[in-house]
Design a protein around this nucleic acid. Structure first.
Lengths: 200, 200
DNA sequence: AACGAGAGCAAGTACCTACTTGCTTGCAGC
DNA sequence: GCTGCAAGCAAGTAGGTACTTGCTCTCGTT
């Protein structure tokens, strides 16, 4: 790995753990295994370094999208939700720190919602397709329903470790519960699976 | 207001905005309108001051509980969710900052979930009563379903300002959407209202 | 071998922070 | 009026931080 890349990764990791002020250049240098002055040779200032590091960390590719044509809503949504949850958990500290610091430093700390907005768009489209292909006839707006499932996943990922009493079941069981409740909430019943198989 | 109280309120406000390190004793003193040395005369150290301030701020009374006996689930849940949302929004910065900093400073920064755990317990009981009184015959576990609604509310309160693209409707409409989807998800249909009225 | 680039090392600068110390002032109670 | 208490003010201490500067070393290229 190139030194510059190593510095960026170290800076994002330290920031995620101890925030902007706690991410001293000394600490970042140690984490990256370089001399402190090297940070300034590559990036000029702490602001620039952390701005780039946070942006790079928030740009990691998201997982597989939902299929354009739904065939098995529960299976597809559970699989997708699992990937979203992994992404959220892996980035939990970074997301939490960005949320806490974005108001104070909008030019440096990127809004943490980029990937989540992409997920919301995907889910919205998927829900629209569910309606279009007759998996549900219930009345709901995909755009306003999507935040329900995403919100539950987000809160679980961000809060489970600090609010353990609120989450009595294990993480994967929780995902299945959220998806099941959500699908029923939007009128997609379990037997929907049989309905798609019959025309075949 | 007494000086000591003024200091605690100021300390919590500054912490919520700029975190532990950013909450310099100079800044807290200015916010409280006292001399910096007064902080130390009352609290001895910055750690002690912020520990007490955060605890006091996190101990604000929560809103009205859900009724022990459900009569109108939608109405009752919407009203309750509104109150939860107000609480979460008022404390948004504090909660976000506590979540970001609790891992680094567990003795000082209180886990932010006290009131939320109380809410989860209330909702759990309420859902149990819904089942008991026949508002739903669907299969779901109140303990694992509660985090779905609470999570959506929590994520909305914590994330709406930093992830506006994810929330297309206004906050109150969103609350009603979450409650509607949730009730349907646990098998409480809208007509449940008529069912409770007929015996009268 | 010579040169240039990049990184390490050490020392230093200017500023910031939690906290201390000595003194002064204002107010309440006797 | 006198005393004690609480708070303000100013100066200071010891440690920390982003950043700079001057020098040295290593490695790759010509």
């Amino acid at each position: 790995m190139e030194i510059r890349e190593r510095i960026l990764v170290a800076a994002a990791a330290v920031f995620a753990e101890v925030g902007f002020r706690g991410a001293t250049t000394r600490r970042i240098a140690m984490e990256a295994g370089v001399n402190e002055v090297t940070l300034f040779r590559h990036f000029g200032s702490k602001d620039r370094l952390l701005g780039e590091a946070i942006q790079a960390a928030n740009s990691r590719p998201s997982g597989s999208p939902l299929p354009e044509r739904p065939t098995n809503p529960r299976k597809e949504l559970v699989a997708w939700a699992r990937e979203q949850m992994i992404r959220l958990r892996v980035n939990r500290n970074l997301i939490r720190t960005c949320m806490a610091e974005v108001a104070e430093r909008p030019e440096i700390v990127e809004r943490p919602g980029g990937q989540t907005t992409i997920a919301a768009t995907q889910l919205r489209s998927y829900l629209t397709q569910l309606k279009k292909h007759g998996f549900t006839t219930a009345r709901f707006d995909p755009a306003t329903a999507a935040p329900m499932l995403l919100g539950a996943l987000f809160a679980d990922a961000m809060g489970r470790d600090v609010m353990p009493d609120m989450y009595p079941n294990d993480p994967d069981a929780a995902i299945r519960t959220y998806v099941d409740l959500f699908l029923r909430g939007i009128g997609v019943a379990r037997p929907a699976k049989r309905r798609t198989k019959e025309p075949v």
